[in-house]
């Protein structure tokens, strides 16, 4: 647990971070909460030559609602999300996800921006940000751009971030109308990461499901949107039978389900179905 040599630079502004990133390119890594990066560095699995600590950039830590959009700064910690009155009221899925994420130490230091940028295949945030239809706002050498969460996660530990980019915020439309949400997860007994994690948001109109977002993590080498589940829910009465039928599609199209010591891909897919149904039932109950 002894990292390789690196330079450590603390920056006070986004501009400073971006110019350093531009200068050091692939040699540099951004240090946010550090709860994925530092363990990997201690194992020497990652050996960045320069660490750019953005922890002092105050402008990246916020949770706010503007014009129907909720904005969460990249450096907002899991704990801040867990305890945000704004989110608990307008999008409780995110605080519920945060409560199940890591342990207290991780939640106090780890950040949503760091987590999505790291793109661990079993991390919790990716499921939630996909479910709420978030965009990841990225800032890079050519300025700002927004990437749909669905397109942001490319593969294991791989995002569509380009060299020189950093995550600025996560934003999404505040849920409107009668909504119900839930995050359910099977924790790996050792790591606490999601064996499966299911994030659900449902909108109900006239007793029927008018829209839904289902994000799944842990099952495949990247988080995904369970589109067939969403399609099956559209217009459904959200009764037990229709929820179970919809949930049966939770791992449709997944051919590379993760197998490791604790759970095979087959079991993961099964858990995905069961927990999707349970999360849907919980969310539907909350929507009433």
């Amino acid at each position: 647990m002894i990292p390789a040599n690196f330079d450590y630079i603390t920056v006070k502004s986004l501009d400073e971070a971006l110019s350093l990133l531009a200068k050091h390119k692939d040699d540099a890594k951004i240090l946010a909460g550090g709860h994925s990066l530092l363990p990997a560095m201690k194992l020497r699995l990652m050996q960045p030559k320069v660490l750019i600590d953005i922890g002092k950039i105050k402008e990246l830590s916020y949770i706010k609602e503007e014009g129907g959009q909720i904005h969460i700064g990249a450096m907002t910690t899991h704990f801040q999300i867990e305890t945000s009155a704004l989110l608990q009221k307008s999008c409780p899925l995110l605080p519920e996800t945060a409560t199940q994420l890591g342990d207290m130490q991780v939640r106090n230091k780890g950040t949503i921006g760091g987590s999505v940028a790291h793109a661990d295949p079993a991390a919790d945030w990716p499921a939630a940000v996909i479910a709420v239809g978030a965009e990841i706002v990225v800032i890079g050498p050519k300025g700002e751009r927004a990437i749909k969460a669905d397109d942001f996660f490319v593969d294991m530990l791989t995002t569509s971030l380009q060299p020189g980019d950093l995550v600025k915020e996560v934003r999404f439309a505040a849920p409107k109308g009668k909504t119900g949400q839930a995050y359910m997860k099977v924790r790996h007994p050792a790591s606490g990461f999601a064996v499966v994690g299911i994030a659900v948001t449902l909108t109900v109109d006239g007793g029927k499901c008018s829209a839904s977002g289902i994000g799944v993590t842990g099952v495949s080498s990247k988080p995904y949107r369970a589109k067939s589940v969403e399609a099956a829910l559209k217009g459904s009465a959200l009764d037990a039978k229709s929820l179970a039928a919809a949930a049966s599609h939770a791992s449709d199209g997944i051919s590379d389900a993760i197998s490791e010591l604790y759970a095979t891909g087959e079991y993961r897919k099964h858990l995905a179905e069961i927990y999707t149904r349970r999360a849907l039932e919980t969310a539907a109950g909350r929507a009433k």
Binding site: D103, H188, P189, A190, S191, F193, L261
Partner: peptide, 16 residues
Amino acid sequence: LISGSLMDYAVPKAAQ
């Protein structure tokens, strides 16, 4: 030794 770290080797934690 593929259960080589506490990410894979599951020592019970208080919550379990």
